[in-house]
């Protein structure tokens, strides 16, 4: 008797709870459907894409890597500046040499959306341009940041001053990804023309290697050796010869 009355009470509570739930939710379900025509023209029947971009870690030292991770919905094509076309969802390891805003654009039938993540790169000395302008920059700014490197006589090894100049140049180039450059290899007027052309090639390639090691894509760099065919100056003095022993950077238009 005792037992059966307890069971009866439990069942009663359960029924009451179900009934109460039904009272709360039921009224929404029963709302009348909206006639689409009454809302006027819709921009798209497809929902707009969504995008999420993260970087792990978000701050690194020069030379370290960052894993970019992105998730999108309703997107058909996804691009990341500086990386290019990527899958709609994915990860990628990148090694930026300067602080970089990675900018993702997801395009779908419902429009496009963007996502950004900033990776801070702690560069030991070179000041970094805070953003990738994506343009060529000015000629003056180019020559201010990308300085010619000079060589010892009959040498094609980068001197310490040239190493740091190359670092500065690389960070500028990395923040202006639209720039393509020509590196001209030059020699002083002494020595023989054919050998100097080969030596100039080694000089220009030494400068190119320094930039590539600092993260500049090799495809952005064209190398031309001029040997002693195009002299900067023509006096017979060490200062003039030094002017001529250089790898000269210029914009490749």
């Amino acid at each position: 008797m005792n037992l059966s009355s307890a069971r009866y009470r439990q069942a009663l509570v359960a029924i009451t709870l179900v009934a109460a739930l039904g009272a709360v939710t039921g009224c929404h379900k029963k709302e009348q459907p909206v006639n689409p025509a009454s809302l006027g023209p819709m921009p798209s029947t497809q929902p707009a894409p969504t995008a999420n971009l993260t970087a792990e870690p978000s701050a690194i030292d020069v030379g370290q890597s960052v894993v970019l991770n992105w998730r999108t919905q309703n997107a058909t094509s996804v691009t990341i500046d500086g990386v290019g076309e990527v899958p709609v969802n994915g990860t990628q390891t990148v090694t930026p040499s300067t602080s970089t805003n990675f900018h993702l654009t997801a395009k779908g039938e419902g429009g496009s959306t963007e996502a950004n993540v900033r990776v801070t790169v702690r560069v030991p000395q070179a000041p970094s341009n805070p953003s990738d302008n994506g343009d060529m920059g000015s000629e003056a700014a180019f020559h201010q940041n990308v300085k010619d490197v000079f060589f010892d006589y009959d040498s094609y090894d980068l001197r310490p001053d040239a190493q740091s100049a190359a670092q500065t140049a690389a960070s500028y180039l990395n923040s202006h990804s639209a720039i393509k450059i020509v590196i001209g290899g030059y020699c002083d007027d002494r020595g023989s023309a054919e050998y100097n052309l080969a030596l100039g090639e080694n000089r220009a390639n030494a400068a190119k290697t320094a930039l590539v090691n600092a993260g500049v894509a090799a495809t952005r760099i064209r190398v031309i050796s001029y040997g002693k065919e195009k002299q900067f100056c023509s006096e017979e003095s060490e200062s003039c010869w030094q002017q001529n022993r250089r790898a000269q950077f210029s914009l490749d238009r």
């Binding site: 054919e194 080969a198 080694n202 390639n205 050796s225």
Partner: peptide, 9 residues
């Protein structure tokens, strides 16, 4: 001839 196609003449 001399060629620097590998980067070194």
């Amino acid at each position: 001839f001399s060629s620097s196609r590998t980067g070194d003449p």
